[in-house]
C-alpha cells in the first residue's frame, strides 16, 4: 500500500514529484487517482491541503486553481459550457470531490471539462522544482501530457465567441462519456471569424480539431459549413471502443454532436 505524503507547500510537493517520479500518484479529489493510480504506486501525495481552489476573474478571463471542484464550477462560474460539463461528471458526491486539475488528467473518454477548456484555449501552469511553467493546454496534450511538476492553475481568456458544450452519454446524468464536443465560434459579419473546436473521448486525450475549425473560418455558419466541420472532426477522431460505445459509434457521434453544437450557435 502506498505511503501517504502530505506536502505543506508547493515547493515540497514539487520536490516529492521530482524525487519519486512515476512511483508517486497525486491525489486531489481522489475520484480517479484512488482507484486507478494509488493501488499501483509506492507513494500517494495528497494536495487538497495546498488549497489551489480559488477562482479569480479578471477582464472577462478566469484563473482557476487546479483544485477547484466540479461543484465550485457549477456554483460559481458564469460560463454555462463549463457548468454543463461539470454537471455531467458523476453524481453530486463525486462533483464535490473531483477537481478541474484531475479532469485534465482523466483517462479517455472522460475529461469533459478539459474539452471545454481546450475550446477556451486555456493555459496550464505547473509548479516545478525550477519554478513555474505555463503552456497552452493544447500544447500540453500534443506533447504527450507529461507533467514535470504540480498542476496548480488553469487560465483562460473570455470566450472569443459563443461557447457550447455537448456531451453524448447513455444516461442523462452521471453518464460515462461516449464523446463530448465543445465549440467556441466568433461570428464576424455573418461569417465565422474565429473557431475553436475541441472533442473529448475521440483519442488519447481531449483534442483541438484544426480541420473542423478550418472548415468553418471565413464561411457562413450554414448547414453546408456545419456538416463539413462535423465530417472533418469525425475524420480527425481516433476514438476507442469500450463497454459503452464502439469506435464506429463514437466517430459518428463526434460529427452528430459537433453539428448539433454548431447549429445551436448558429441559431443564437
Amino acid at each position: 500500500m502506498a505511503e501517504y505524503l502530505r506536502p505543506s507547500s508547493l515547493e515540497e510537493a514539487a520536490g516529492m514529484i521530482a524525487a519519486h517520479g512515476s512511483t508517486l500518484a497525486i491525489v486531489a479529489g481522489g475520484t480517479s487517482a484512488m482507484r486507478f493510480a494509488v493501488p499501483y504506486v509506492a507513494y500517494a501525495m495528497g494536495v487538497r491541503g495546498l488549497g489551489m481552489n480559488e477562482i479569480e476573474r479578471s477582464s472577462g478571463g478566469l484563473s482557476l486553481g487546479a483544485g477547484v471542484t466540479m461543484r465550485q464550477i457549477r456554483d460559481s462560474l458564469p460560463i454555462p459550457a463549463l457548468q454543463d460539463a461539470a454537471r455531467g461528471v458523476g453524481g453530486p458526491a463525486l462533483q464535490n470531490m473531483a477537481t478541474i486539475g484531475g479532469n485534465i488528467f482523466a483517462h479517455p473518454p472522460n475529461g469533459d471539462v478539459a474539452t471545454v477548456l481546450l475550446a477556451m484555449d486555456a493555459t496550464v501552469t505547473f509548479f516545478t522544482t525550477n519554478g513555474e511553467r505555463t503552456q497552452k493546454l493544447e500544447e500540453f496534450y500534443d506533447s504527450g501530457a507529461q507533467a514535470d511538476g504540480l498542476l496548480t492553475r488553469i487560465d483562460c481568456a473570455a470566450p472569443g465567441g459563443e461557447l457550447v458544450f455537448l456531451k453524448c452519454g447513455r444516461q442523462r446524468f452521471n453518464s460515462r462519456t461516449v464523446i463530448s464536443v465543445a465549440a467556441c465560434i466568433g461570428l464576424d459579419n455573418g461569417k465565422v471569424g474565429n473557431a475553436c473546436i475541441a472533442v473529448g473521448g475521440a483519442g488519447a486525450h481531449p483534442m483541438r480539431c484544426a480541420a473542423a475549425e478550418q472548415a468553418l473560418i471565413g464561411r457562413a455558419l450554414d448547414d453546408a459549413a456545419i456538416t463539413a466541420a462535423g465530417d472533418e472532426a469525425a475524420r480527425a477522431s481516433s476514438p476507442g471502443t469500450d463497454a459503452v460505445a464502439s469506435e464506429w459509434y463514437r466517430r459518428r457521434m463526434v460529427a452528430t454532436y459537433l453539428c448539433r453544437a454548431l447549429r445551436q450557435i448558429a441559431a443564437g
Binding site: 481522489g30 484512488m34 500517494a44 495528497g46 491541503g49 458526491a93 463525486l94 464535490n96
Partner: peptide, 28 residues
Amino acid sequence: SQGGCGACSVIVDGELRLSCLTPVQEVD
C-alpha cells in the same frame, strides 16, 4: 469501492462525499 454506487456516502464538513475514494488523511 469504486465510487460508482453511492452506498458509502457520508458528509464531510457539510459536503456530500464518497468515503470509498476519500483517503482518511484528506479529512484530517
